[in-house]
Computed example of a mutant assay.
Amino acid sequence: MVFSGKLRAIDLFCGCGGISVGLQEAGFDIVAGIDVEKKYIASFEHNFPDAKALLTDITTVSPADFMLEVGIAPGELDLLVGGPPCQGFSKNVPRRNRFLEDPKNLLVKSFLDYCETLQPKMILMENVAEMKNGFKEAYSQEIISRLEDEGYTVTTVILNAADYGVPQRRKRAFFMANRFNIKLSPPPQTNHPRTKADNAPHDLFTQKKHVSVWEAIGDLPSVKHGEGHTLTEYASPPQNEYQKRMRGTLTSTTNHVARHLASIQYERLASIQPGQGLKDLPKHLQTKGGYSGAYGRLTKDMIAPTITRWVFHPGSGRWGHPVDIRTLTIREIARIQSFPDHYKFVGSYTDQAGQLGNAVPPLLATVVANHMQNQVASVRNDVRESQHTLSLASLNAIA
């Protein structure tokens, strides 16, 4: 057997738990999560009460001590995942092994230290898309080389979350590794760009296309800025497959409260139409500068831009609701990030926005994790069947 019993996973740099909830959907048991940010790991701890939530700096805890803490021996863990923050991209470092020596990359180095000590059956590392191709791939090649030295076969790929059912354009790099000598392929695309013929609303049985903003949040009730309730009933039955998946069996959800806007912020959003933004503001409401998408309003049929930790501020991006004069609620942001509606976020509005902006979309994590374990199991089964066939042929030859 490749795996036995329920697969176990540990999430380093877990944040609020984006990868973890995705792995849970893929059938994994989350053993532990570790993060240095108290405001972020609070949501992980709330939603994974049976997992160890370790609030600590990973660089100060040796992998050996960590294994004792969570009760894992080398080679026992099925999957180690993590998205270590990565900032050091210096072109002035000529030697191949200098990338990970940059202090800005200390967390990536620590992640690899944990990989080498825990020796999990599979590894999944997520990071910015630039990591894979930057500096003629020297950065990613160093990571691959270090994992290969430990007996892993590594595949790197850049995935756009929108291509896998997430209603958001978000490109990220994934390093998929395993100890079974299997060269994993990228997960096949499940959702495709829309054409002019795809303007009609999708029901539960149509071919999968990119999920639009309104398909993601259209069943959530209208609220005014500064209003909303801790517990909110849905405005309608689920209108499509995505809403049905996010809701499950729930009849109400949480975190659907709109942030109160300053008067000038409200006036700016109220002065423009869905699809418009900073350049469309009346002269008396213009700002001196800002992001190109600042004070932008979403449209119902668009795919949302990449959610950032600044999603709480209308001047930081296209976060205006396509119908109401307000920014998105935490539940709407969570929907665009593909967190299921049962997932509760704790902390202030800005804390929760930060958690979501830094999270890996759970649905994307589910797709990648399922593809990894299914492909490993399939290849290993093919090998066993081939060996069995050869054994039968040998016995027949002897007979």
Rank of each mutant, 00 (worst) to 15 (best):
T155R: 04
S4M: 15
A377N: 11
F48G: 08
H321C: 02
I272E: 01
T232V: 13
G151W: 00
A32R: 06
G75V: 08
A9F: 01
H46W: 11
T327R: 04
D341N: 09
K39Q: 13
Y295V: 09
G248F: 00
K6E: 07
E150A: 15
V36W: 07
S236C: 08
I217S: 00
R169F: 10
G218K: 03
Q189I: 15
I158P: 02
F66Q: 03
I264P: 12
G277F: 10
K52M: 09
A369N: 04
A393W: 08
I182M: 03
Q265L: 01
T253V: 11
I41Y: 07
L55A: 03
S252R: 12
H342G: 15
P238N: 03
A258T: 15
P340C: 01
C115N: 06
G320N: 06
V323P: 08
E148D: 04
D324C: 10
F180I: 06
R268G: 03
S222E: 14
A73G: 07
D280C: 05
M372I: 07
H229F: 15
S145A: 14
A304P: 01
M125P: 02
H284T: 10
Q352C: 10
L54W: 02
G315M: 07
Q286Y: 06
N47V: 08
E332D: 04
E150M: 13
L55T: 03
Q168R: 04
D382A: 15
T56N: 10
G320P: 02
Y234V: 08
Q239T: 10
L250M: 11
Q265E: 11
G228L: 01
G5Y: 00
D78L: 11
